[in-house]
């Protein structure tokens, strides 16, 4: 008599019949938790944005180079819309909500997909995710020093206790002052080095006004940077194009353990 058994031995560690989360989801849960502990909610907005929220409200004027066809996708609609070029558009929408609801403080992270009309390579994709965010409060309560504190804490919890950050002067039309934020990263078995991670700054008073807030009363910081980049640094992923090509080999390229 023959009896069939379920195979019990596998050469690989994935013996579980459970499926797998995309590493981006795994990462976002950790990120959400760390920011949640610092008072940040999570905000969403449309991926297909109008010009006002993607550009004008952020002081990216009608003749600004960022609006050119070679940087931004435009739809054939009339008036045209843009697959958003950053999630700072969500910040604008949240600031508008603050004004409408009469809020004086709010902290949000805005993770989401963004689009750039640019050639792709190992570090550039035409579609990628950004982790944008902001904190706004009564003048004097949310400062550039707080941006440093929030992100130092984030990296120490997410990357490792030796993580530290530094600011370098930069420029964005929607923040003043503007900074680039570098992360001190020690990859296992390698010497530490500074990595350029994201742009940030104090929200420009003109942006607060455009959203209907009074810059004499409230102020705050905002930042925006690639989410894939953060994951690439943490887990040593060499190529950003792995993330959104639907390939399950990438999803299974990280041995996972549920906590």
């Amino acid at each position: 008599m023959e009896s069939k058994n379920t195979p019990a031995v596998d050469g690989q560690p994935h013996a579980t019949p459970k499926g797998h989360l995309h590493p981006m989801s795994v990462a976002m849960r950790d990120i959400a938790a760390i920011f949640g502990n610092q008072g940040f909610g999570i905000a969403y907005g449309p991926e297909l944005e109008d010009e006002f929220h993607n550009f004008d409200a952020l002081r990216v004027a009608g003749d600004h180079p960022a609006r050119d066809m070679q940087d931004t996708f435009w739809t054939q609609e009339k008036p045209p819309r843009v697959p958003r070029t950053h999630c700072t558009s969500v910040t604008v929408r949240e600031l508008e909500r603050m004004a409408k609801e009469g809020l004086t403080e709010l902290r949000m992270i805005n993770p989401g997909k963004v689009f750039r009309n640019e050639a792709t390579d190992a570090t550039h994709e035409a579609q990628f995710y950004q982790l944008d965010g902001f904190a706004v409060g009564p003048v004097g309560t949310v400062t550039l020093a707080h941006l440093k504190g929030v992100w130092t804490r984030f990296y120490q919890e997410y990357i490792g206790p030796n993580a530290k950050i530094r600011f370098r002067p930069s420029y964005f039309p929607f923040t003043e002052p503007s900074v680039e934020v570098d992360l001190w990263f020690e990859a296992p078995g390698k010497e530490g080095r500074w990595l350029e991670m994201f742009g940030a700054g104090m929200l420009h008073p003109g942006v607060l006004e455009n959203a209907g807030l009074d810059p004499k009363k409230v102020a705050g910081f905002a930042w925006g940077g690639g989410l894939e980049r953060l994951i690439m640094v943490k887990y040593g992923v060499p190529d950003v194009r792995f993330f959104h090509n639907g390939d399950i080999r990438f999803v299974y390229a990280f041995d996972e353990k549920q906590i």
């Binding site: 499926g19 991926e47 739809t75 054939q76 697959p83 959104h244 090509n245 390939d247 999803v251 299974y252």
Partner: peptide, 17 residues
């Protein structure tokens, strides 16, 4: 298993310029 794919398609209601 979760995958992530591109937002652009061969056909759709909204077309890029």
């Amino acid at each position: 298993t979760e995958v992530s794919t591109q937002s652009f398609a061969k056909k759709g209601d909204i077309v890029l310029a």
